[in-house]
Design a protein around this nucleic acid. Structure first.
Lengths: 158, 158
DNA sequence: ATAACCTGGATACTAAATGTCCTGAATCCC
DNA sequence: GGGATTCAGGACATTTAGTATCCAGGTTAT
């Protein structure tokens, strides 16, 4: 899995504590000492996916496109890593005995079904957790996290 | 995910229909028209993981090391793809505000926990399905699969 | 107008997946 | 014992994906 997923999750949590404020890619990158241009690519992907909105120009930047409760971890994974399952069925059975060229073995193959059922539970778990849930859990163990995050962004002058 | 996982799953199902018989890598590869040397690498990994046993020499080959009911899909995934989660936490929080160098953020970070909980459900689902389950489900829709598999192996003279 | 900022394409570098080859060791058969 | 067959595993080559940088072009605030 793309490392950008981790960056995107933490950036979205941070943005949830800066509602209505546009934060530049440079500042989001500086927060965790990440490569600006590369993080920017991930932010662009989040924007294309409708998770962030972006504004050009001075005073521009990124912010959450909707309520953190409406942004699931699955949304972010799909936006950065793409919609494909980790297990890709290559329809190996087409080379086996009694294969029917007209059959779609990604549907019929029992191995493929079993792997897909596991990926489904994975996606369901991710879809059941939102950025708001994460932020809330952070606050419950570190109540000063939102304030210290805002403070750090305020002090990242560049 | 490594394509070898798919090869390994189907090969194990086939081996479950040839109990007590040693099948060479060359024949297992010919069954699905796979590259012999590369499949052999996956079979070696399964052997190292204790899923298969191997015998050298003429009349040698591979067979299941234990009852198909005792071989889970997770066993195979771990053997071929390794034990690492898809999401690797790089402890990005160590670069953030108030970071403690002594803390292991793979444990503490809420994002990391959330991703790990999803991978856990994934692994649990895979661990709940065995090669015997797969084989049984194949038989229920294609009752002649074991016989036709044995027949094809018998006719792979090489 | 200028400076700051996002967009997206082009490019380079690195790491991982995929695949081949060869030597060595084990085993069977004659 | 000698030859043939097969697994074990390291070395190597090729392809693809991930990581990263740079620049030219468009947008917006001052």
């Amino acid at each position: 899995m793309n490392e950008g997923v981790e960056w995107a999750m933490h950036s979205c949590v941070n943005l949830s504590w800066l509602p209505g404020e546009a934060v530049t890619a440079k500042r989001l990158a500086a927060f965790y000492n990440l490569p600006t241009a590369y993080l920017n690519k991930q932010l662009q992907a989040l924007t294309r996916a409708g998770i962030l909105t972006s504004v050009s120009g001075p005073k521009g930047g990124f912010q959450l496109a909707r309520d953190p409760q409406k942004i699931t971890l699955l949304d972010i994974v799909v936006a950065i890593d793409g919609p494909d399952d980790a297990f890709r069925c290559t329809q190996i059975l087409k080379e086996g005995p009694g294969a029917d060229p007209k059959v779609d073995y990604t549907k019929v193959c029992v191995v493929s079904q079993a792997m897909r059922s596991a990926e489904l539970t994975y996606r369901r778990t991710l879809a059941g957790q939102t950025i708001a849930d994460i932020a809330e859990r952070v606050v419950s163990t570190s109540p000063d996290a939102p304030a210290s995050t805002r403070n750090r962004f305020a002090n990242l002058k560049s």
